[in-house]
Nucleic acid binder design. Structure first.
Lengths: 125, 125
DNA sequence: TAATCTTAGTAGTAATATAATACTTAGTCA
DNA sequence: TGACTAAGTATTATATTACTACTAAGATTA
């Protein structure tokens, strides 16, 4: 992994990366988890990206890892105090998602997104 | 824009995309905003991506747009009721970011991230 | 009169991020 | 002996995002 590309400018950037919120949400609900446990909880994520995200989150001080030097090795991830302060927020976010997820499916074919092209023509009378 | 690639599976996916949270945060704090206004508020974002994100957020029912067929055209973006329910959550998130942003900078060179490679060697004695 | 500016994007291409797959390590189990 | 384990890494392929330049019709400026 390149060191340069991991110099992330701010926390929004990290949170805005794919899977970050997912990972934090799972750490929030499951407490201490291991690498492959997260992979099982989020089956669509690849090892590569999970590894990157965990390193970024660790660097940002959101999670910490504990390594057990066994064979095979064991690594446990958990939230730091900073990460724990995110828990209530993530909970609320999760509730919000659950609430609207169903609505979204119902309204899927009703939404009438406005498109600028048509209105440009209208303006060009 | 390809229709297929815009079929997004869930809200987490949309929120987890780059700039989404940023855009929502700015809509939360500024109310009704126009396209170039957002670009000014988030100078690093490109037109291409801002356009994509706004469309996705509109499709998910988080924001709505109002088009004024003038020349030059005017488009206003604002939060839907669903989007407005995110406001308190985004506020808390924003506070959390502000709180820890400074810590992060201070601790930047103190963090001692654990790395598995070293421990594998330890285990391999 | 003509060049320039305006807005909310789009088109095309370059750069970057993510995905898929195979591989590593040393010990345990069959 | 060979398969299996966990937590990744390396390599290559694909998808996303960024970076220009461009559009349209009118208003402003020179």
């Amino acid at each position: 992994m390149n060191e340069e590309k991991c110099e992330i400018v701010d926390i929004w950037e990290v949170l805005g990366r794919r899977w970050s919120l997912h990972i934090l949400k799972n750490l929030t609900t499951h407490g201490t988890v291991r690498f492959n446990e997260i992979k099982r909880l989020i089956p669509e994520i690849s090892s590569t990206v999970l590894s990157d995200r965990l390193l970024e989150l660790e660097r940002e001080g959101l999670i910490s890892k504990k390594i057990f030097p066994q064979v095979p090795i064991k690594v446990e991830y958990s939230l730091t105090p900073q990460g724990k302060e995110l828990q209530p927020i993530l909970h609320q976010l999760n509730n919000w998602v659950d609430k609207w997820q169903s609505h979204r499916i119902e309204n899927k074919f009703e939404t009438d997104n406005q498109n600028v092209k048509a209105y440009r023509k209208a303006a060009a009378r």
